[in-house]
Amino acid sequence: MTELLQNLIDGLGRGSIYALLALGVAVVFGIMHLLNFAHGELITIPGYLTYWAFNQGWNWWTVVPLIIVSAVLSSLLIERVAFSRVRGASDFTLLLTSFGVHFIVAAGFLLYVSASVKPYPRPGWFADTIAVGSLNIEVFDLAVIVVTIIVLAGTTWLLQRTMFGLALRAAASDFDTARLMGVKSDSVIRGAFALSGFLAGIAGVFWIMREGQVTPTAGINPMLQGVLAALIGGLGSLRGAVLGGLVLGLAEVLLRSWLPVGIQNLTTGFVFVMIALLFIFRPGGLLSVPQVERV
């Protein structure tokens, strides 16, 4: 029982980060049908800035805002330079464009920094735990969960209560009609990328803290987890993305504790197999959005 609770908290902590990443992927997918394989770069770029900032003598208090701001700006910049030029193109083109962007950013760091691992210090409280009864809760997990709840609440408020949120939702459900109502396509798309970047920035703060180092390909894993979580939840559904992230995090942690010791390092492989099974039996994801075939 204790172990299960412990695992649940670990899983939620992990899943919260995935949920934020997936939500960012889903927001952009909703608005321009782009599955953003470059989403992980919103962690790579701030990751290198973190490394740079610590070398300049910054500390986590100043690095955290740097991560968030740089993630938002990177997201906007990538939209401006690459994605704005392929708006409305085929899915094939959109997918490869984002894949190419990932590659350019990674290669850029390879070119101008180096392939080697660049470390920076984790925050002092990183490994601290709080004992609650027989549970040992990591402060890090707790922080992730609390911050995620706050950010999700804020995002919900943004989407439900502000005109920007309404415009975003309207444009996601029917882009042309939203424009007929006067929603400006440029603003709403940029807004979506800014929001996506902000969510990635929050997730990035924790991801970057946890990793303690950065490499040119550091974005691949967060990208994959975000994209998979969005797909598990059902592409196009924002709630699904959050749910997918939590499910993915829980699955990883629970599976790791249940698998026999010898094959524990194959956890990720098993998670993928489970995802594959999910797609086979429920192709649209957990909260699938009905797809109407148009003649």
Binding site: A82, L96, T97, F99, G100, V101, H102, F103, I104, V105, A106, A107, G108, L110, L111
Partner: peptide, 11 residues
């Protein structure tokens, strides 16, 4: 440089 060339060619 060749890695960057790949990415640029793709995009």
């Amino acid at each position: 440089l060749n890695s960057v060339v790949l990415g640029l060619a793709m995009v």
